[in-house]
Amino acid sequence: MPLFAIPFPAIDPVLVQIGPFAIRWYALAYIVGIVLGWQLVRRLVQRPGWTIGPEAVDDLLFYVTLGIILGGRLGYVLFYNPGYYLRHPLEILSVWHGGMSFHGGLLGVITASVLFARSRRLPFLEIVDALAVVTPIGLFLGRIANFINGELWGRSSNVPWAVVFPNGGPEPRHPSQLYEAGLEGIVLLLVMLFFASRPYRPEQRGTLGGIFLIGYALARITVEFFREPDAQLGFLLGGITMGQLLSLPMLLAGIIAVLHGRHRSRRRLETAR
């Protein structure tokens, strides 16, 4: 072991266990992230310019939670391990064994938001903007939980802060979960709060969502250079990872959304003259 390698901290992935009932840090991260996001969105939509009321946000909570769980699980099954689950279809339901995909969860939340917007006749892009502001909270907590679980570790490294993970072999590795928590969580949350502090205008709907997509995609693509690819996938064509591949469409969609919002704002200014 290199002189400066850091042993993995002895943190039990199970926070509390009473008989067969156990609360894991990972599950707690999802619960706390959803609750904090819900409360922050309720405050956000009470500011001038937003047409979604706090009562609608309360009802949206169920849709979003379902989208996160179903989308995250199905995304992992389809993107990261389709062969295994094709042979063991009943394992798809075993979410307690782990295996969630952010990109799948994102698609699940978008689908849930579309259904909710149509049922309540609310602007879909405004719902997306509100959710985009608070999503980094869940990302931060989820990555911290990944670190506690000793999973999704980084590539081998000799940096002074490299960590020897229990299931990652004897070599020290980048704590890439913490890199993601910092970039996808803290940094991206500050960026989103900065742009959300500006007056919200209907012609700019979708811009906050676009900024989030750009920020997350850039953060994820960057961290993937330090993160160990999933064992069952390895590197894809050209040395790209699945996380980077899935983030490229996000980056493109985010750029289009931001440019479209700027175009609509410019048109409104020209019309007002």
Rank of each mutant, 00 (worst) to 15 (best):
E171N: 13
P172E: 08
H174P: 03
P175T: 08
P175E: 05
P175K: 05
P175A: 09
P175N: 10
P175S: 07
Q177V: 02
L178K: 06
L178Q: 09
L178T: 07
L178D: 06
Y179D: 00
Y179M: 05
A181G: 09
G182R: 13
L183E: 07
G185D: 08
G185P: 09
I186R: 13
V187C: 07
V187T: 12
V187Q: 10
L188Y: 13
L188W: 13
L190G: 15
V191T: 10
M192A: 04
M192G: 02
L193S: 06
L193N: 00
F194Q: 05
F195A: 11
F195E: 06
A196L: 02
P199L: 11
P199T: 09
Y200G: 06
Y200R: 02
P202F: 04
E203R: 04
Q204Y: 11
R205A: 11
G206L: 02
L208E: 07
G209H: 04
G209L: 06
G209S: 05
G209R: 04
G210R: 06
G210D: 00
I211P: 01
F212E: 01
F212D: 03
F212Y: 13
F212K: 00
L213S: 05
I214P: 02
G215T: 07
G215Q: 05
Y216G: 03
Y216V: 02
A217I: 02
A217H: 04
A217P: 01
A217G: 05
L218Q: 09
A219P: 09
R220G: 01
R220T: 05
I221A: 02
T222Y: 11
V223C: 03
E224I: 10
E224N: 06
E224Y: 10
E224H: 12
E224G: 04
E224M: 11
F225Q: 11
R227P: 01
R227A: 01
E228S: 15
E228Q: 15
E228L: 13
P229T: 06
D230C: 01
Q232L: 14
Q232W: 12
Q232H: 13
L233S: 10
